[in-house]
Simulated scan of single mutants.
Amino acid sequence: MAFRTDVINKQGYFISLEGGEGVGKSTQIRLLGADLKEKGFDIIETREPGGCPGGNAIRHLLLEGDIHRWTNATEALLFAAARSEHVTRVIRPALDKGQWVLCDRYIDSSLAYQGDASGIGEDNIRKLHYIGSQGLMPHRTLLLVLPNGEGVERAKIRDGNQGNRFEKRDLDYHKKVNEAFHKLALENPERFRIIDASGTAEMVHKRIMHSIDDLLS
């Protein structure tokens, strides 16, 4: 089942930031948004799960509580429902107005976390995405990468060992997630750019800006 990219308004770009826990996506979204606004672009910054009232309500269900709160199938369905609301209420209207959308996680997180690491299967995640969000895909996906385990340790320090349901999962799970992201990037080189997330936030931001040079011209 092919995803649709032709539905995206050519005046705006949809950029997703992806990666495992603790790689700095939220920081880089803020830096990227500020830089693009300074250059005169109309930007919205958003995140998944969340980004709208319905999505935020589901976010609490997904991130809070015991790691075994939901079955893997229920988790995948909840993410798909949150994304459907997000696309309908926020992302597609913004693109139709010619805005740039910067999104902290999108479909590739579902493919990596639920599709591969949780065993639901990528094809099933793609079917849910097609049903709920009409297969809408980003123009560019920036995959922030760190060595296995380093991002999780960063997240633990950041959150004082009080992380969400996903951060609390074992290193084997996070290794599977990172491997799945890498595989997705290799399979979709026209959309993905792999970004070294080591070093200072400013260093990583420069790498990100270089990776979208072609969209700015």
Rank of each mutant, 00 (worst) to 15 (best):
K168G: 04
K183E: 15
H60W: 05
E167H: 12
R126D: 07
H210C: 06
T74V: 02
D172Q: 13
E187F: 01
G65C: 05
R158C: 05
A76P: 05
F181V: 07
Y173S: 06
E153G: 04
I195Y: 10
L111R: 13
N124E: 15
A155Y: 03
K175H: 13
K25D: 01
E187W: 00
I29Q: 06
P189I: 11
I91G: 02
N56G: 00
A34P: 00
V7W: 09
R89Q: 15
R89V: 09
T71F: 00
K183I: 12
N124V: 15
K206R: 14
E45Y: 05
F3V: 13
D42H: 13
N188E: 12
S217H: 13
T141P: 05
V87M: 00
K127L: 13
F41N: 07
Q162K: 15
A201H: 10
M209R: 15
N56W: 01
L78Q: 02
K156S: 11
L78T: 00
V101T: 09
D42F: 10
A112G: 10
N72G: 10
P189H: 11
C52Y: 01
G121H: 12
R154S: 02
L17Q: 09
G98S: 12
A180F: 10
I195P: 09
G33D: 04
E85K: 09
N188W: 00
S109I: 01
Q11A: 14
H129Y: 05
E21R: 01
L146W: 06
F3Y: 12
L216M: 11
G22W: 00
P53M: 08
L136S: 05
T71K: 06
I212E: 08
V23P: 04
V204Q: 03
R165Q: 11
L61V: 11
R165F: 11
S198K: 12
G55N: 02
G119P: 05
L17A: 01
L142C: 07
E48C: 06
L102Q: 01
I120Y: 06
L63K: 07
S109M: 02
D35G: 00
G115Y: 10
I195A: 05
I58T: 07
G54S: 11
I195R: 05
I157N: 13
A2M: 12
L184R: 02
V90H: 02
L62C: 03
L77H: 12
G54N: 12
I58F: 07
N124Y: 13
R154D: 02
K175W: 00
V177E: 03
K127P: 02
S133G: 04
L61G: 03
R169A: 06
G119T: 12
R89L: 12
G50W: 00
A2P: 15
L215P: 09
G115K: 11
N164I: 07
E190A: 15
A82N: 07
E153N: 14
L62M: 02
V7G: 12
A81G: 07
M209E: 08
I131C: 08
D66C: 06
E85I: 00
L31T: 01
D116Q: 14
F14A: 08
L128H: 03
I29M: 03
A57V: 04
E150F: 10
G98F: 08
R92K: 15
H139K: 13
H60G: 14
L142G: 11
D35H: 14
D35T: 15
P189V: 10
D213T: 14
S217W: 00
K97S: 15
E21P: 10
Y173Q: 01
H174A: 08
L36N: 04
M209Y: 08
